[in-house]
Design a binder for these strands. Structure first.
Length: 847
RNA sequence: GCCGGGGUGGCGGAACGGUAGACGCAGGGGGCUUAAAACCCCCAGGGCUUAGGCCCAUGUGGGUUCGACUCCCACCCCCGGCACCA
């Protein structure tokens, strides 16, 4: 092989000066990462090392689906966070492959959505031109980092051959009654006359024109994910997922138990005084959800959300102006501000009264924006004595506060200067006085249930999934609106509904979706009655694209079905899914929901898509999050150029625990870089001598540790173990034996596939180190050390360490320990009350 | 405010309740070299000590234990996420 001089062999004047090692040692050339990496990339490509044909996929004996979250192909290119995540997943996949499993590791592109659309608008490029070029660049970079990606099974969510099936999934849900059209709130910029995403609203104002953003309700498509809330929650118990992710999902679903209670509205003009609930049962009824039905005797007023439909009906003429005014003000806030703004309580009285079903007393009905229409019933019973928010409100508006729970040391008359939210004993609650709150909860609901005024109820924080987007860059929702037939599904054989190339996709002041301006496109005929009809002009949410992509990968070469039944049975559910916790709730929840729904509809025979999920950590730089404004963003290309992909990968994995993240320091890469140079040198100068038994012991302990840790994504300590082992191989300038270094080459392979392939070849092997189960096995007997170190403590303080043979008995160890000078001195003349002995670890003399 | 993750040398980070600081970076000393790079060897938390060694030290304060970075309680700080969830 030709040897090209490295840059370092030229001195300052440009004269060629071969390195000493190269001169002395004819067979040891320098490690040239760029040549090696290019060579192996080409070989893998030519030989199809990482790709499966359809037959191979069908015939795999030990299928292992190794999935990572596919990237959004931005114009900036791959960033370090992507590379970190993909490398961590790739190391795991390569490791599994080397133990003999058939690992399928696909990658694709999540390329629809608001970011592309906005970027395209800013640059004046059409997304249909922008995205392909971004994808080309991403593909180049992804190949460069040496991932084991099967490029024959890639997906691009913006390709009609992909979104055809995204639309198909919408139709399956639509037909099953899981997709429905109803009103939902959106952020509305009255100046741009357009809908804004939450992130386009900055401090309550439109990010473009700074006009205050309003809230509007428009008809949109929703997936009824809440139907699945209980199952989505229950399955979390057995999924092998990162704890943090599971908890995030649990909180997001937010199950709470309580009761739905009815508060009859009193007819206008009813005077004060106790009235039996039965007398007003026929009238209007306000339903509230509460987790504290035990406190109903303390409910001194009712609050409706400003948007609550009953507000219109209950408000009396005298208060109408004020109420209308308040409702307008609430609507003027955008979706985020409504929730974020000051904690100051605001609200107005409607003039109406309702009956507390427990006490029979009339209580006022207010409206206030601290009550949310989206949660529960959009109305609450306010118990200022035992809920701090209600307490604050009552104080602001001079409403009565009643104590109905007495904590330790309290009685019915103990005044409240803040809400008492803990447990206790019922007071001021009629027949329930004296009961524990836990018992009263059930008792009160049962009692009111007899009069049809309550029922037990489980409520979820989870909302239905709004999938409508009044934008351009997404798959059209495959529905046709017909005056006579209503919304009709586009027949499946007419999919995909192709997104037309429209020159002007910019939201404009017409206030309608970009597609609604393309008359030629949306005019069509009703598939049912053939009347003139109109296509749905909203596109769907990108989370729908990414909600099923893992089903598509193995079947990406099937043009006539979204996923092949047989292939899917063989490869799914996904064995290991690795991704960021920023998608802990939405993406993962939606994927689970779609899988569950498709399962129930008979399309899949499993209901959870990801058996194991691991969230990776975040890479920061110099102690701070990377951001353009800080100017501390790592640009990967030049680093790979200088050090090679193998070194970069190794460094990223060495930085810190994969599931936590790490702090990227530019100088730190020198460690892994030097390690690979030394490995190169050691492998190429290996001798044929037999392995040294002591080195062999270390080797087997290293294999054991690596095998265990690569399965658990504990990469940083695994890399450290390999470094330690290489240090042993080279200590004192010794030459390693081939049998000592070859297993190390194999263990490095998941991290640094290119150099490992090259060394594997140079050590005399044909074919790829990734073909065949080359992962080394360890031998317990060889791994065990004969001489071990025992810590000797006196009163728990270390006084010596002694070396003994592994088999040494407790008596022997104690004896040797006592004879140590320093130990003897600390024991001198003292009475030993106890000796703690931990086999193979330590002896502790307690005085 | 709530949820999650953290706080260990100059720095990144290691440590099934059992020798705190593995591995690496940066640093210092030495070897090889005309020189440099590379490579090899050695030193390196702080304080005290002539040495042998001793004391202090894992955000703070308590506790459990023969023994605590690790477990429990209270608190402080940093990072990420969520936002009045009835």
């Amino acid at each position: 092989m030709l040897r090209f001089p490295t840059l370092k062999e030229f001195d300052l004047l440009g004269h060629f000066r071969p390195s000493r090692r190269a001169m002395e040692n004819g067979d040891t050339e320098d490690y040239s990462h760029s040549a090696i990496e290019q060579k192996w990339r080409e070989r893998w490509e030519e030989r199809g090392t990482n790709s499966y044909t359809r037959d191979e996929l069908g015939a795999a004996e030990q299928p292992y689906y190794n999935l990572m979250m596919f990237p959004y192909p931005s114009a900036e290119g791959l960033h370090v966070g992507n590379i970190y995540a993909f490398t961590g997943a790739d190391v795991h996949g390569r490791f599994r492959r080397m133990t003999g499993e058939n690992v399928f590791e696909p990658i694709g592109f999540d390329a629809f959505g608001i970011h592309s659309e906005n970027f395209a608008l800013k640059q004046g490029v059409h997304p249909m031109d922008l995205i392909p070029s971004n994808i080309r660049n991403f593909t180049r970079q992804l190949r460069r980092i040496g991932g084991m990606f099967d490029w024959t099974h890639s997906v691009d969510t913006t390709d009609p051959s992909y979104y055809r099936w995204t639309q198909w999934i919408f139709l399956q849900l639509f037909k099953a009654g899981l997709a429905e059209r109803r009103e939902g709130p959106v952020n509305w910029c009255p100046s741009c006359k357009t809908v804004l995403a939450n992130e386009q609203v900055i401090a309550g104002r439109c990010e473009r024109c700074e006009t205050p953003v309003e809230q509007r309700r428009i008809a949109q498509w929703f997936f009824r994910i809440t139907e699945y809330a209980e199952r989505l929650l229950d399955n979390l118990d057995w999924l092998d997922w990162s704890d943090s992710t599971r908890k995030a999902q649990q909180n997001w679903i937010g199950r709470s138990e309580g009761g739905e209670l009815c508060f009859p509205v009193l007819p206008a003009g009813t005077s004060e005084g106790a009235i039996p609930a039965s007398e007003v049962l026929e009238g209007l009824m306000i339903k509230v959800f509460t987790t504290r039905p035990d406190t109903v005797f303390g409910a001194t007023y009712i609050v409706l959300a400003p948007e609550h439909p009953l507000v219109e009906k209950v408000t009396d003429p005298e208060h109408r102006n004020e109420v209308d005014e308040y409702r307008k003000r609430a609507a003027r806030k955008d979706l985020v501000a409504r929730k974020v703004e000051s904690k100051e309580k605001s609200g107005v009285f409607t003039g109406a009264l309702a009956l507390n079903p427990a006490t029979g007393n009339p209580i006022p009905i207010w409206i206030a924006d601290y009550v949310l229409m989206e949660y529960g019933t959009g109305a609450i019973m306010a118990v200022p004595g035992h809920d701090q928010r209600d307490f604050d409100f009552a104080h602001a508006f001079g409403l009565p506060v009643v104590r109905v729970v007495a904590g330790p040391g309290d009685d019915a008359a103990t005044p409240l200067d803040e809400a008492y939210e803990s447990d206790g004993v019922m007071v001021n609650s009629g027949e329930f006085d004296g009961l524990d709150v836990v018992d009263a909860k059930r008792g009160i609901v049962d009692k009111l249930a007899e009069q049809q005024l309550a029922e037990p109820r489980v409520n979820f924080r989870l909302h239905d999934w709004c999938i409508s987007r009044q934008r351009y860059w997404g798959p059209p929702i495959p529905i046709i609106h017909c005056e006579r037939c209503g919304p009709v599904a586009v027949p499946e054989d007419q999919l995909p509904v192709v997104l037309p190339r429209v020159a002007n996709f910019k939201p404009d002041d017409s206030g309608v979706s970009p597609l609604a301006r393309d008359e030629e496109w949306y005019r069509t005929r009703c598939p049912t009655c053939d009347d003139p009809a109109r296509r749905e002009t909203d596109v769907s949410d990108t989370f729908l694209d990414s909600g099923w992509y893992f089903l598509r990968y193995p079947s990406s070469d099937f043009g006539d079905r979204p996923f092949d039944a047989e292939i899917t049975r063989a490869w799914l559910p996904v064995e290991t899914y690795i991704g960021g916790n920023e998608h802990a709730v939405l993406h993962l929840m939606y994927s689970r929901f779609l899988t569950m729904a498709l399962h129930d509809l008979g399309h899949l025979d499993f209901e959870e898509p990801f058996t194991k999920f691991r969230a990776h950590g975040l890479i920061i730089r110099d102690g701070a999050k990377m951001s353009k404004s800080r100017g501390n963003v790592i640009v990967p290309d030049p680093i790979i150029e200088e050090y090679g992909a193998d070194t970069f990968r190794l460094y990223l994995m060495f930085l810190g625990p994969f599931e936590v993240g790490g702090d990227y320091r530019d100088e730190g890469i020198q460690g892994p870089y030097g390690f690979l140079h030394r490995l190169w040198d050691t492998a190429l100068s290996a001798t044929d001598a037999p392995a040294d038994p002591e080195v062999e012991g270390k080797l087997h302990r290293t294999i054991e540790q690596l095998t265990q840790q690569l399965g658990e994504l504990q990469y940083n300590t695994a890399v450290a173990a390999m470094m330690e082992y290489l240090n042993v191989l080279r200590t004192g300038g010794r030459k390693a034996a081939r049998a000592e270094v070859e297993p190390l080459v194999v263990m490095v392979a998941p991290f640094c596939p290119h150099i490992a392939e090259e060394l594997w070849e140079r050590l005399g092997h044909e074919g790829s180190v990734f073909e065949g189960a080359h992962w080394p096995a360890w031998d317990e007997n060889k791994a065990r050390e004969d001489q071990i170190q025992i810590a000797v403590q006196v009163n728990g303080r270390l006084r010596a360490t002694i070396a003994v043979v592994r088999e040494a008995s407790r008596d022997t160890v104690e004896e040797i320990a006592r004879r140590d000078d320093n130990v003897a001195r600390h024991l001198d003349g003292a009475q030993i009350s106890r000796v703690v002995y931990v086999p193979e670890k330590l002896v502790n003399f307690v005085l």
